[in-house]
Design a protein around this nucleic acid. Structure first.
Lengths: 341, 341
DNA sequence: TTGTACGCGTTATCAC
DNA sequence: GTGATAACGCGTACAA
């Protein structure tokens, strides 16, 4: 194990060049003769040089770090989003410093301070706890994904359109009554569009409908219990009617499907179900569940493209600060499987 | 937006102390009088000082960075492991630089070079592509999780014990034949223990058994098709016998369960099923699936504890290099749900 | 095309 | 208890 690390000074001594020339070899190789390039290349091998980006960053101020704050990685949605963001490394070469939030403002503030201390050039925020107004005040380019975004740039799924598609599909299935089951989503988060899209579509088509908003719990057990209760409710309130249920996500949809399926030994014609997210749960359910597929890869890429643009602009000698906020929407894709006709 | 960043020099000027004293305020505050501490604290607020860890790291060489290489975040297992590792930040204060591998040796080598360039103090490797011998040669403390680990420290689930527990449960269920379905796991990766544990337990109890090792595919469709085929195979080969099936993971188990359930409208007594991992899929299946629960949180913590120990040792003036490899095993927990009696 | 000298923001080593 | 000064490894005018 080589204990002493090789620096430009060592290479310079070894090749009889100056440190500057070594530096140029890395940053502007064309300014050296081919011969000298080869000399240095050989020296790097001989000495087994290991580049030191920290020193480089320290000298030129470009850390190439992007900070990410996710609420958790338990939900497939966040894990996959992180995955897709990490994959942009190949295109943009930014490195990612990641913190998993704990639904705790103070903790997340600490994370942000830590990120700033490491001189991140930008930040992608998926966590919901800290208001966008505060985020915007940190003086670092920020792109939010699927959260309240009044004061920061953002990329979101077009939740409204997704809901319209889902609801329309249920209408085409000739359902007698349409139900939307969701939690009490605040109006200022993008996911609220799922409720609004459902309502508008139902009203437009003068369809019999009901929106059920309540805390459905977080653990699987709680969700399952909520769904069981709602099933009983629907059975009583809408007997012998074809019920089209649009659930807020695939986990909920799967839970509801399981309850119905076990009750009937199959999914009866009387129930049509559609979820949201296209999470693995939907495809691997006892009956593959129709869903609205978020284009996670596209969202991640758009977010990074905006962030990179902002970060690059900032590094210019005379930066033109982006004045208007960018709020990009990515249209989700309706995925028809077996829980709808 | 404060454009000019405040440095120790600014604070020193503002307070009429020297830079050294400012540094001491952060690293050894007790060496200052209370009075002076307060003076400096006030100055920090007045000037809105933002610490610069990069400069600190550059000066003292302790980056507090740990590199992580995961194969992907699509599988819940890796996502949750990453989650748990990230959570150790609260305890150890190490920051994580993360790369998602692409099953591509060259790409992962590039990632490792990048990590080394950022002067990571240690590395947690979950990816399988690069041999442990090469990993060990990079001169950085490394802990592997659930992968080939001949030349590096590691923390793994006790796969053998997990398989013994699963198989024993099937035996207690009075199955006439025991089947283990898995892919062709190499002998040198920890997961091979699942096969060995199954075999040893069956032999010990002189139970009728069969191990089916084949490529089951990676996409949900492929897996589903493989399972459908295996179901037909079992129906023919073991008619009217009570079949106890131990599957390599919960995704496979869920797929097999769905096939059986749809065929019979329920899970017949003739089939008993157990998976591995305790992934959400197992609990949320049409019939909650018995499984062997990996203690992901515990594994993550043990891995970081070992890594931290190694990293701290290395920072001492006269480090005592750890000579023997540590291979820690974490016992999994049998989770009995409804697919076994 | 190549070299000199200094700056980046902190810590470490001596002094006082 | 406090201060001056030299590292740390690289980039970057400015010179040659």
């Amino acid at each position: 194990m080589e204990k002493k690390k090789i620096t430009f000074a060592d290479i310079a001594k070894y090749t009889n060049f100056s440190k500057t020339t070594i530096s140029r070899y890395f940053n502007n190789p064309d300014s050296l003769t081919i011969e000298n390039q080869e000399t240095i290349a050989q020296a790097l091998k001989d000495l087994n040089y290991q580049e030191n980006k920290l020193a480089k960053v320290f000298a030129n101020g470009k850390s190439e770090f992007v900070g990410i704050i996710v609420p958790n990685l338990y939900l497939h949605y966040y894990a996959e989003m992180l995955n897709q963001i990490l994959n942009t490394y190949e295109s943009f070469n930014y490195k990612f410093l990641i913190f998993a939030g704990k639904n705790n403002e103070e903790a997340e503030r600490k994370y942000i301070q830590e990120l700033l201390a490491y001189k991140i050039e930008g930040m992608v925020v998926l966590s919901h706890t800290i208001p966008s107004k505060e985020l915007a005040s940190y003086g670092v380019p920020i792109v939010a994904i699927e959260r309240e975004d009044q004061y920061v740039h953002s990329v979101n799924t077009d939740n409204y359109m997704g809901a319209v598609q889902a609801t329309s599909l249920l209408l085409k299935n000739n359902c007698d009554v349409l139900l939307h089951i969701n939690s009490n989503v605040p109006k200022n988060v993008p996911a609220f569009g799922r409720i609004q899209g459902f309502l508008d579509t139902c009203r437009e088509h003068q369809a019999n409908h009901e929106v059920i908003l309540k805390d459905l719990g977080h653990s699987h057990q709680e969700i399952h219990a909520s769904m069981a209760e709602l099933y009983q409710y629907m059975e009583k309130k809408y007997p012998h009617m074809k019920k089209g249920i649009f659930l807020a996500n695939d986990t909920h949809a799967n839970s509801m499907l399981n309850i119905i399926f076990r009750e009937h030994g199959a999914l009866p014609e009387e129930y049509r179900i559609i979820g949201f997210d296209d999470s693995p749960a939907s495809g691997q359910a006892i009956v593959p569940i129709s869903t609205v597929g978020q284009q996670i890869g596209k969202i991640a890429r758009e977010a990074m493209e905006i962030l990179v643009m902002l970060m690059e602009e900032r590094k210019k000698r005379r930066p033109q600060p982006q004045t208007e906020l960018i709020h990009k929407h990515v249209t989700p894709i309706l995925i028809r499987r077996e829980t709808t006709d």
